[in-house]
């Protein structure tokens, strides 16, 4: 053994509290683990690579003529919508993968280490922002290929992308919560899509709101996903960071404030 003596347990100075700096450091270490895993298992990136391409292509040509008269006119409406839909859907995978991950023996070690309890969860969610970034980039790139030229300019498009990534990260706490409390990965997927489909489709992502019946219009207008879609449209098409963007950020903050503590508590209960 290289370590010749071990400091006796009774003579160590220890604290029973994890500070914010350590929490952040632990979370980033765990995010590093997530990135290595992503590199090892590139097949898990299929949903963020193939889905944006196929969905953008399909929706553009299926709905373009019917909804906006032409493909070119539909793109400024659709690309922000499909971007939000794709990236938010991707955040479900975060919950599913977290569930699978937690069943592995290595989580026992995480629990036995003197690290912030939130770190294994926060790290996983943080690493997944890379997935959202991939999906965002591909969706915009696909739009560009199809002829979409955002009038807001590159800076505004990047900002719009960041807004979507931040909001999806916040939303992923909801699915992380399902991931922690659910019995199996399959059930996480089940519950999550049940929540997700109404949220993403009953929004202004694909169709103009005024074509909907009145009772639906009410829901679509309060739906946070609609606000996010509008915010992205404003940014990408007119380079304005308006009220919808602030509402989206506020919504994201509320989701994190509610679901992060809930998730950590559920996680610790299982610990």
């Amino acid at each position: 053994m290289t370590a010749l003596t071990i400091t006796p347990g009774a003579s160590r100075t220890l604290k029973n509290h994890v500070g914010l700096a350590q929490t952040v450091r632990n979370s980033f270490s765990m995010a590093g683990r997530g990135l290595i895993k992503m590199r090892r298992t590139p097949e898990q990136l299929i949903d963020v690579t193939v889905q944006p391409i196929i969905f953008t292509l399909m929706f553009t040509y299926i709905f373009g003529g019917a909804i906006a008269g032409s493909v070119a006119d539909y793109l400024p409406l659709l690309i922000p919508g499909i971007l939000v839909q794709t990236v938010v859907t991707t955040s479900v995978v975060t919950g599913v993968q977290l569930r699978e991950d937690m069943d592995k023996g290595v989580f026992d070690r995480f629990k036995s280490l003197p690290i912030a309890r939130i770190a294994p969860l926060a790290g996983a969610l943080l690493a997944d922002t890379v997935r959202y970034a991939i999906a965002t980039t591909l969706t915009f790139a696909m739009g560009f290929v199809l002829g979409y030229r955002p009038e807001g300019g590159l800076g505004a498009v990047v900002l719009a992308g960041l807004l979507v990534i931040v909001c999806s990260w916040a939303i992923s706490w909801i699915f992380a919560f399902f991931g922690v409390i659910a019995r199996s990965a399959a059930s996480v997927q089940g519950i999550s899509f049940l929540v997700l489909f109404p949220l993403t489709f009953l929004s202004n992502a694909f169709v103009p709101v005024d074509t909907l019946p009145a009772f639906l219009q009410w829901f679509v207008n309060v739906n946070p996903v609609s606000h996010l879609v509008t915010a992205v449209r404003d940014l990408a098409n007119t380079a304005t960071f308006g009220g919808d963007a602030w509402i989206s950020l506020l919504g994201a903050a509320v989701i994190v404030a509610v679901f992060a503590p809930l998730t950590v508590r559920a996680y610790m209960k299982k610990a």
């Binding site: 683990r33 290595i36 895993k37 592995k104 023996g105 290595v106 070690r109 036995s112």
Partner: peptide, 16 residues
């Protein structure tokens, strides 16, 4: 901070 745990099932990360 005072313990090390080696479980019955190897608690190391398989993908790393």
């Amino acid at each position: 901070q005072l313990i090390g745990v080696t479980g019955q099932y190897a608690s190391v990360d398989e993908t790393l």
